Simulated scan of single mutants.
Amino acid sequence: MGEFGGIRYGLLVCDHTDYDVLLLDPGPAPFEVVKVHRELTGVGILAAKQAVTGPLPVPVLTGVEERTARRCVARLRAVGATAEARPHA
């Protein structure tokens, strides 16, 4: 592999960044957030309720593409929650 081959490989590997979706605050309608959490994760109602009402911040999704993370954050914010997408550590 030549010098340029190594650079190209590095750009391809480093270009993809996974994101985590974090719930920072359920807001005024926690039941609506529980419903959205269930839709996004596929967990049961009890697990979603415990996640939403437990200690914050709560990771909703981990290691997803940026576009997916932004959509999930938008869905959570639409029901009054405070959420954000952070690069996956």
Rank of each mutant, 00 (worst) to 15 (best):
V60T: 09
E65N: 12
V64K: 11
G42T: 07
A29E: 14
L22D: 07
L11R: 12
G63S: 08
E65P: 01
T82I: 02
T82G: 05
H16N: 12
I45W: 07
R77S: 01
V73H: 09
P57Y: 08
I7K: 14
A81S: 04
P30D: 02
C72A: 15
P26S: 07
V21R: 10
F31E: 15
A78K: 11
D25L: 02
R67L: 04
P28D: 11
A69D: 03
G54Q: 12
V13C: 07
A69L: 05
T82P: 00
E66M: 04
V73T: 07
R75Q: 11
H16E: 15
E39A: 14
H37N: 06
V58H: 12
H16T: 14
D25G: 03
G2E: 08
L61F: 08
A48Q: 01
F4Y: 14
L56D: 09
D18R: 14
L24N: 12
A47I: 07
V43M: 12
G42D: 03
P57R: 13
C14G: 11
V52Q: 06
R75I: 03
A78G: 05
E39Y: 09
I7G: 05
A85I: 00
D20W: 01
T53I: 10
G10C: 09
R67K: 13
V33Y: 03
G5M: 10
R71Y: 10
P59R: 12
G6T: 11
D15H: 11
K49S: 05
A85R: 00
A51N: 06
V60A: 07
V21D: 01
R75V: 00
I45K: 15
D20Y: 05
A48I: 05
P57H: 11
A69R: 08
P55D: 14
D25W: 08
P30Q: 05
L61V: 01
C72P: 03
A29M: 11
R77H: 02
D20G: 00
R38P: 01
A83E: 05
F31M: 13
E66I: 06
V33E: 03
C14M: 14
G42Q: 06
L76Y: 00
R8D: 09
A51R: 06
A69K: 07
P57E: 07
G10I: 15
R70D: 13
R86M: 04
Y9P: 02
L11A: 08
R70I: 03
A69P: 04
A48M: 03
R71K: 15
L40W: 06
L56E: 10
R38S: 00
R38I: 04
A78Q: 11
R8L: 07
I7M: 13
T17S: 06
P59I: 05
E3M: 01
R67E: 10
V73G: 07
P30G: 06
E3D: 07
V13I: 15
V60G: 03
L22Y: 03
H16A: 13
V58K: 10
G54C: 08
L22K: 12
I45L: 13
L40G: 08
D15L: 09
V52L: 03
E3S: 15
H88L: 04
P59E: 13
T41Q: 08
V36P: 05
V58D: 11
